[in-house]
Amino acid sequence: MLKLENVTKTFGKIVALKDINFNIGDSEFVFITGASGAGKTTLLRLMLRELLPDSGKIELDKEDITKLPSKQIPRLRQKIGVVFQDFKVLGERTIKENVEVALAVIGLPKNDWEARVEHVLKLVGLTDRADLFPAQLSGGELQRVSLARALVVNPKIILADEPTGNLDWETADKLMDLFEKINSEGKSIIMATHNKLIIDKMNKRVIELKEGGVFSDSESKVKTKSEKGKK
C-alpha cells in the first residue's frame, strides 16, 4: 500500500535521506530504526506530506503523494493516523473531546461520534478517564489518548514517531501490545523507534536507516513470524 522509490531529501547541505526504496504491504507492521539523526522522522514527515522530497516517488494506495496539490493534503492526512513522541494532545480539551476533534476534522456527522469514541476509548482502556483533562493523566495514558485519536477515524495506516520515547519500559511494553492488537485487526503500522528492546521483542519487519540510507531491511523474513528482525 506504501511504496517509496528513490526518495531523496536534503536540507541545504544536509542529506537527510538518500535514495530510499521500500515497499510496505497492507496490514504490515514495520519498524524504522537507526541512530538519532538517521532520518526516521524525516521519512515519516515525507509520508504525511509535511515535507516534499527533492526527488523520488512516494505512493500511497497507488497515488503519488508528492504530486498532490496542497489542497488535497488534508484528504491524504485524514487517511493516516499519527502518533507522536510528545503525544500532542490538546491541553484545553477533555480526553473525549481530544478524540472527537479527529472526527470533526474528517467531517463525520455528530450522531455517529458517540459509538466510535466509546469504542476506541474502550480499546485503549481510557473509558473511565473520558472526562478528565490531559494534565490529569500519566504519560502512558496520554500516549493512549493520542493513539485513540489516530484510530477513531479508522485509518488504514498508522504512523508513529518514537511513541515510546517518553515512556518507561513497562508502559512502553503495554503500549506495544496495543499496537500489536491494532495491527492484527488489519491496520498497517509504521513506527520509528530506536528502542532495541522493543524491536527485539516484537519480532516484526525492521528497516534500519544509517546516515540517510537504508542500511538493512528484514523484509524477506517478515512473513515467517518465527524469525527475528535484524538490528
Partner: peptide, 16 residues
C-alpha cells in the same frame, strides 16, 4: 499554535 499544528497534521482543512 500547538493546537493548530496538531489539527493540521491530522488532516484539518484550512477552513476548519
Amino acid at each position: 499554535r500547538g493546537e493548530i499544528e496538531v489539527l493540521d497534521l491530522i488532516g484539518a482543512t484550512p477552513g476548519f
